[in-house]
Design a protein around this nucleic acid. Structure first.
Length: 290
DNA sequence: AGGCAGGCTTTTA
DNA sequence: TAAAAGCCTGCC
């Protein structure tokens, strides 16, 4: 799927990605909230690693890690073993012109394989917040509880905190993250994880449906958050989170969802959800701004 | 029993 | 001031 060539020392090299891959669209797609723009590229934290990546050609990207790190960490993270062009090709204009248009504009979006614990806390925090507010709150939690790291080039950043680290925060420290009523959900999730009531290694062995049931046992986790954790953290690509935007498009375009062909796009309904989400959110934003 | 209204903290536009 | 990648509680 991609070829690599080294262009220098210090673990900096260029990869060629020949599939759908658009950093800007992924960054704006509402699945990741810690990417930081840096010059003409992005800094991407994931577990204990920080990647700097920037586009240097139509299909070429410079990354600041070793080939081994890219293969073991970042290739799975970006889900580069899967062809999103092929998934997009399942959509026929005559069958669904709206989804076709959404996918055309959304070409380059991928479903990242993110850390499920981070996704759980992040999407608990996301409730009734817009994307800038989610970013701010998540970063506050990382600064309050996460380990401080220094990248090779001296950049300081914070890891996403573990359950232990979140549970050990004082009420005052957690309150300083300004999560509002969600802070009790976050603490409850951390304490449930410490008691072994939520274990992502066990969860990843379950079916998508069983995952949703287990996740919704957590205080403050409903169907929407459970679907997001399943899609973005457990990489169940058929998960279909219904947020306000998706409910809106299902209502306005698909007669409340009755005319949307979930069976036609299984097991990739989650990818289609991302196209529709971006399309409808941007469409609405354009209409508002005009 | 399950569907629905009201409330919830804070930020953003 | 309304809305924001919702969920919980209480009521019927």
């Amino acid at each position: 799927m991609y070829n690599m060539k080294k262009v220098g020392m210090r673990g900096v090299f260029v990869i060629r990605i020949e599939d759908d891959f658009d950093l800007e669209k992924i960054a704006d797609s509402g699945q990741c909230f810690r990417w930081q723009r840096d010059g003409d590229g992005f800094r991407i934290p994931f577990r204990d690693s920080l990647l700097f990546i920037r586009k240097v050609g139509p299909q070429d990207y410079e990354v600041d890690c070793t080939e081994e790190e890219f293969d073991s960490i970042w290739r799975p993270y970006f889900d580069l073993v899967r062809s999103y062009r092929a998934i997009r090709g399942k959509i026929k204009k005559k069958d669904d012109p709206v989804l076709f248009e959404a996918a055309k504009l959304g070409q380059g979006i991928r479903i990242l394989k993110q850390d499920p614990w981070e996704m759980l806390i992040t999407f608990i925090i996301s409730q009734r917040k817009n994307i800038p507010a989610i970013r701010q709150a998540v970063e506050a939690v990382c600064r309050a509880a996460g380990k401080k790291k220094t990248a090779k080039d001296g950049t300081e950043w914070y890891m996403f905190p573990s359950a232990e680290e979140i549970a050990s925060l004082s009420d005052e420290a957690l309150a300083s993250c300004r999560l509002g009523y969600r802070d009790k959900y976050v603490r409850a999730a951390a304490e449930a994880a410490l008691r072994g009531e939520i274990d992502f290694r066990k969860l990843s062995a379950l079916s998508h449906e069983d995952c949703l049931v287990e996740l919704q046992k957590l205080y403050g986790v409903g169907i929407k958050v459970a679907q997001c954790v399943s899609l973005f953290g457990l990489h169940h690509l058929d998960a279909f989170p219904r947020d306000v935007w998706i409910l809106r498009v299902l209502d306005e375009v698909y007669d409340g969802g009755k005319n949307y062909r979930f069976d036609a796009y299984a097991p990739y309904n989650g990818v289609m959800q991302q196209y529709l989400f971006e399309y409808y959110r941007n469409k609405n934003a354009r209409e508002v701004s005009v």
